[in-house]
Amino acid sequence: MNCRDVREVADSFLCDELLTETNHEILQHLDSCGSCRTEIDGRRTLRRALHGAFDRAPDLQPRPEFIDRLGGQLREAAAHNHRSWPFSPRWFAIAAGLVLAAGLAATILMNRPTPSDTLLAQDAAGDHQNCALTFRLVRKPIPLEDAAQRFDSALRVLLTAPPDDISTPGGPARVVERHSCAYGARQFGHVVLQYQGHVVSLLVTANDRSTRAAESVDAVPHLIGRPMNGLSVVSVNGSRHAILLVSDLESAELTKLSGAVSVPLAQRLAARFTVDRNTMASLYVLPALQGPPWLDAGRR
């Protein structure tokens, strides 16, 4: 190992990230090379200086009362989570057994994700993680209008729907961003929402299951599989598009939000398709749709 090799792996050496054999080679080199020894010592000095500066800087230390208060809040929250058992043991046992059996059967029979569902959920979770949370997409997001012209005119709907401020049964949701982005082989219309302090991605993409859901406006939210890396995916298969919500929210909460946001959007997209295909027919279809006030306002 020569000086150049040592300098190249010096950072990893200091972080103890090298193989034992490589460490030995470096140490052997350092025994006979004063220049590299000085270099490594310098880097080590800087590392220690950083360590010490963070340990000692007064304005980086928490107030003792904050730590005490935090401990109390956490203890209270932990106690609050403790569940009470108000029912008699026998009835509880019977009910629990029945609910468990029914739940298992329902889960197996009704909620089994297909392979295409799973792939779609993986893409959606990946897009949420890389675009909404960490901003590390390989390809740059583009405006919705551009995406509507290039890929799918239906994405234009997302320019106004859902509106910036949405009232839902679980509380207000706020749109913080709208764009189109690509993840894997999919092009998504992407609306980023803030809801209950969480970031939620609303993603619209072409539906893989168009034969099953074509023209349908009575789609219902369904959870796809288990949470992936803590992210749940709830899908609504409306018209020719899948509308997905992705977040680290509890699955039940995300499903509730989907009912308030995705289902009306699916209806809007279905109505748009009907309008595109036959303008006269749409005059009869649109009034029959049920949706929240913001959708009706948008339609007018």
């Binding site: 963070f54 980086l60 230390q61 928490p62 730590i67 203890r75 932990a78």
Partner: peptide, 26 residues
């Protein structure tokens, strides 16, 4: 289990609060 979980949390997690704070503060 609940009391064990809290004891575990108190033991494992709470001591890291000051170091988390300085990252957050930075």
């Amino acid at each position: 289990n609940d009391s064990d979980a809290w004891a575990g949390f108190e033991l494992e997690v709470l001591p890291h609060a000051p170091r988390l704070f300085r990252i957050a503060m930075w």
